[in-house]
Design a protein around this nucleic acid. Structure first.
Lengths: 219, 219
DNA sequence: CTCGGCCAATCGATCGATTGATTGACCCTG
DNA sequence: CAGGGTCAATCAATCGATCGATTGGCCGAG
């Protein structure tokens, strides 16, 4: 019944609800249904679990981002596809994305460096698309860094409030945010035909599935 | 040299850098320059310090929000003034705002309830302004809840990257976000004369001032 | 002398991690 | 098939360290 994947799921559930520092390895063991000592048979330790979860999430987003970009050279299309994929990742894996976003400071210096390197790689995709869109005149952007961070924060926030099975479907959330993103950069909406409505993202191994997911986890 | 204000500042500095659960009361005492036992002479305990910081921040934002609203009945003007004030609060008090945002889950049930009540009061201001702007036809909003949360997440994110003395001044950040907000809701820019460029926010008692503020606190 | 401010020492509890031992499934040899 | 050996999987018990909080008393200003 158990194994590394179940441990990662239990960890994501508890880290999202109580935070990394607020979760003990005995909590982790109880949530995963094993003794705390058995954790060390599968994982090297508490921080190693967090690093694995974060790396899996960020690598998933990087892979998706690359898929989103190579479909068209038009910055508007690329931006919408990037946003649609980002939003889908946050909506399909909200707890994993939430933990990946908010527990970076819990990492030791070495692990924090490698995780931040992954995150910077990902965010540079947005930076480059915004730069090219402004250069072509398709985007009207005042301050590029501010717009990039506002856009990313807006998209990252999805994991704070969306839950699978909620009022909006994932494609609906993608539609809303694609529209919001084009508004932010000051370009007309991108026709659905080329904006990547076909983009799908997978449920990550670390994402908890069960109905026990605490509704108040992110309150 | 010490006192409750210094303790709050030390707490905000450490809670932002290491998180609430990751900070011990001995850390707090060291940062404030007193023995950990002396903390209990000024404050009731660790959680009480966090609650005081959060309440001070949220009450400051509520007061500011009310000031922003009563200046005009035009939803576009109200929205821009709300956003300018919110952004200023985040930019002037980034560490306090950051802690207030992200440590809600560390609170016990009773304290979490009262803090969330304050936050809900504040966010309902945005909700009502967005509703009125859509009813008057000034705003083009697809899904009101999604737009509200995207807007709030975008503004809350300022505390993740802005620091006093940074590349942009506070009024410059306000200008950028006022523009982004009107784009998000689909209305024309609001003329500076009525958008509240005069709005100023105070440095909170809990906001650390010194140059020791760790640059990597929110990395 | 009084008393607010302060701290060394200490409380029981819990922390992340390790140890040593037990279990059971599997494989090879006779 | 029987029997010995191997190894992944598991857990109770325990490690030293640290947790939040408390106690009792020292000290200097009024």
């Amino acid at each position: 019944m158990s194994g590394l994947i179940e441990i990662h799921r239990a960890a994501v559930r508890l880290f999202a609800r109580q935070g990394y520092a607020g979760t003990g390895i005995r909590d982790l063991g109880r949530e995963a249904g094993i003794n705390s000592a058995t954790l060390y048979h599968y994982a090297g330790g508490k921080e190693e679990i967090l690093v694995a979860v974060m790396a899996g999430c960020l690598e998933g987003m990087l892979d998706g981002g690359r898929r989103a970009l190579d479909h068209s050279a038009d910055p508007a299309v690329q931006l919408v596809r990037l946003v649609r994929l980002h939003v889908a990742m946050e909506a399909v894996n909200p707890l994993t994305a939430y933990v990946t976003d908010r527990e970076v400071r819990a990492l030791s210096a070495a692990n924090r460096g490698s995780v931040l390197a992954l995150r910077d790689d990902y965010e540079s995709m947005f930076q480059q698309v915004l730069e090219r869109g402004r250069r072509t005149g398709q985007f009207q952007i005042d301050d590029l860094s501010t717009t990039r961070m506002a856009l990313l924060e807006m998209c990252n926030g999805v994991s704070n409030w969306y839950r699978p099975g909620g009022r909006l479907s994932v494609p609906e959330v993608q539609d809303r945010f694609a529209d919001l993103a084009t508004r932010l950069v000051g370009c007309p909406p991108v026709p659905p035909a080329e904006c990547g409505t076909d983009l799908r993202v997978a449920v990550l191994d670390s994402e908890p599935l069960d109905r026990h997911a605490d509704e108040e986890a992110l309150a």
